[in-house]
Design a protein around this nucleic acid. Structure first.
Length: 596
RNA sequence: GGCCCCGUAGCUCAGCUGGAUAGAGCAACUGCCUUCUAAGCAGUAGGUCUUUGGUUCGAAUCCAAACGGGGUCACCA
């Protein structure tokens, strides 16, 4: 049983014994004691004054006396107003540390048997990835890892938006202006090459609109009547009809884009177990519409379009199928939800999608519920906020988007520069140095994007993102490197890192106590992060752990300690901190170096 | 306008299943490297938790309204 549960149980027993009050241990609010007071757990007595017929302080005293006498885990207590602070026996903490050392699965939940699908990334194939995609990719990868740690069977899926008018735009521009340029001939990465033509299309399209407006046409009309957009629409129709020339071009250009994406994905360290392509799924969902009509939960209007009425759910009426029988966005998603269920029998299906689609996912879930789908309840939207720049919103039309590949390269360059300035790479081979720059760059970037609560809109400040001090990825990585140095030295000296190595060591220093408390808490943090789909919780934890360790490191000497058991204890403690820094950072997709 | 989200130190963010004097980092200032990595540690300063009401022994946290910011209300995706 976990220590906190044990203590809750003891307090519950004490309440019964002293006041004849019956409270389930699970209902008791037990909180960590604030740093300025002595103790580890605090019990608030205010809520029990009526039932006990006594003042909050007296209750604290009486419960404290009882616990000190009857609870073997409780060493001492103090009462401040209505707060009963409990001091736990040192031996209890040391035993917990021994348990952690002997349990390689501390923080890895037992298999739940649940299948969890995490869909993330889901890029369009007409332009390269940008900063917003990075938040999406890092979140998706991290949540998937966190769900694994919570014992679930996780599948990472990527639903690629590889068709539609936007793809045709870059195809059309390429057809007109491409001169058979290829990634090989131009030296431009495939996704960037496609993006180049998308931009060229947009430019030419705008010129056409301006011209039409100059001739006196209304702007809205001009947008619809410009020859280029009409051509793109014709191309989309040809694509849907399977026109060979169009499909070949589409294949060729998408192929370039996929090569580019693969490289970026590899570079940023994310991966997928399953790819879905919209070109293969966009017609799905019509059967679901049929099903809904049969069940009488959808209605067909005289013009042939199909609708669902969600006003009872506090939503609106929603179109599910056009009058001409073609699909809309939601139709496809109904289809893919079913397809994913057929493929993976998920208990939970997480969609990592920006918060501008909150309404869409409410509708999707509501419609699936109306259809009586058993998997509807497991549909969850991990909605995240947009990434803003100091200059404001990112707008592709205004060219203010931050390109993912460029950003990563800049981070690496900065890492190199800072590391060289500090003279930290003595004894590194060129290859090792390069590896370190990469690890630090990605650590800084990922941590910066993941430390903020996903739900919140966030500001990306380039200067702060490459900071290596304070609440940053590299600070945590640095702590790991420091510990690694200690462990190397311990190994050289032949000191074993084992649960038995510190014998009956006693007299924990305050900083050591803090560190152990954090290590003990690790599984609860993993659970919480999984429940809330919040990598930010893991990030905070890793930071707290690193900070607590650095305090300890600064105040207490390890190798100058003459008491062998104390020295061995500190080495063992250090080894555990390294392990849980590595693990919690691993759940964020961040690697930690041995030296830096 | 309807619905949804957000508003905490100069800046970026924690805290939000109600509990003690509201915490970090950055920026500013002061100390600490002949000792295990100073990418570190300790400290000073900085707050009417947007405002007003309500619930409560107790509210940054829950409820309501106002103000400010964002999103969304497409036969786009």
């Amino acid at each position: 049983m976990h220590l906190q549960q044990t203590i809750s149980q003891r307090i519950s027993e004490a309440l019964t014994a002293v006041y004849n009050i019956t409270v389930d241990a699970g209902q008791l609010a037990l909180q960590p004691t604030r740093k300025e007071f002595k103790g580890s757990f605090t019990f608030v007595t205010f809520p029990y004054t009526k039932q006990a017929g006594k003042g909050p302080e007296q209750i604290g005293q009486e419960l404290g006396d009882y616990l000190k006498a009857n609870a073997p885990e409780v060493n001492d207590y103090n009462v401040v107003k209505g707060f009963l602070n409990l001091v736990i026996e040192e031996e209890v903490w040391l035993n917990l540390l021994r348990e952690i050392m002997q349990n390689p699965d501390h923080g890895q939940a037992t298999p739940s048997g649940h299948n969890v699908l995490v869909e993330y990334s889901s890029p369009n194939t007409n332009k390269p990835l940008h900063l917003g995609h990075l938040r999406n990719n890092f979140l998706g990868y991290s949540v998937a890892e966190i769900m694994k740690a919570n014992g679930h069977n996780v599948t990472k899926a990527n639903l690629v938006n590889d068709r539609g008018i936007h793809i045709c735009k870059s195809m059309l521009a390429y057809q007109k202006m491409g001169n058979n340029e290829t990634p090989q001939s131009s030296g431009i990465k495939g996704d960037h090459l496609a993006g180049k033509y998308y931009v060229l299309f947009d430019r030419a399209y705008k010129e056409e609109i301006d011209e039409l407006v100059a001739q006196g046409m209304d702007k809205e009309e001009a947008k619809k009547k410009a020859p280029l957009i009409l051509e793109a629409q014709t191309m989309l129709k040809k694509w849907e009809e399977g026109d060979t020339e169009t499909v070949d071009l589409w294949r060729k250009m998408n192929g370039w884009v996929y090569e580019g994406f693969d490289e970026t994905y590899r570079n940023i360290g994310v991966d997928f177990d399953k790819f879905y392509y919209e070109s293969e799924t966009y017609t799905l969902g019509k059967e679901r519409v049929e099903e809904g009509l049969e069940k009488g939960v959808f209605t067909k209007r005289p013009d042939g379009s199909v609708w669902v009425d969600l006003t009872e759910d506090g939503l609106d009426e929603k179109l599910l199928l056009r009058a001409d029988g073609t699909s809309v966005y939601i139709t496809q998603d109904l289809g893919t939800a079913e397809l994913k269920y057929e493929d993976f029998q998920y208990n939970e299906s997480i969609y990592v999608v920006a918060d501008e689609q909150n309404y869409h996912f409410q509708v999707l879930k509501a419609v699936l519920k109306k259809l009586g789908k058993p998997y509807a309840e497991g549909i969850n939207h991990l909605s995240y906020g947009m990434v803003d720049l100091p200059s404001g919103k990112m707008k592709s039309r205004e060219g203010t988007v931050v390109d993912a590949d460029e950003l990563v390269q800049e981070m690496i360059d900065t890492a190199r520069q800072q590391t060289e300035e500090l003279g930290k790479i003595e004894g590194f081979t060129a290859e090792q140095a390069q590896q370190l720059y990469y690890t630090l760059a990605m650590g800084a970037l990922k941590y910066f994007l993941l430390k903020v609560d996903p739900k919140k809109r966030m500001l990306f400040n380039p200067q702060e993102s490459i900071d290596f001090r304070g609440n940053t990825g590299p600070f945590i990585q640095y702590t790991h490197a420091r510990i690694s140095a200690i462990l190397r030295k311990a190994t050289e000296m032949g000191i074993p890192v084992e649960a038995t190595s510190f014998g009956d060591f006693k007299n924990l220093h305050e900083t050591e106590q803090e560190v152990i408390t954090l290590l003990v808490n690790y599984p609860a943090v993993v659970k919480e992060a999984g429940k809330l789909y919040a990598p930010s919780i893991m990030a905070s934890y890793a930071y707290e752990l690193a900070k607590a360790y650095n305090r300890f490191y600064q105040e207490i000497s390890i190798f100058n300690e003459t008491d062998e058991q104390a020295r061995n204890f500190r080495i063992a403690l250090s080894a555990m901190v390294a392990r849980f820094i590595r693990q919690s950072m691993g759940l964020l997709g961040i690697q930690v170096p041995e030296r830096m």
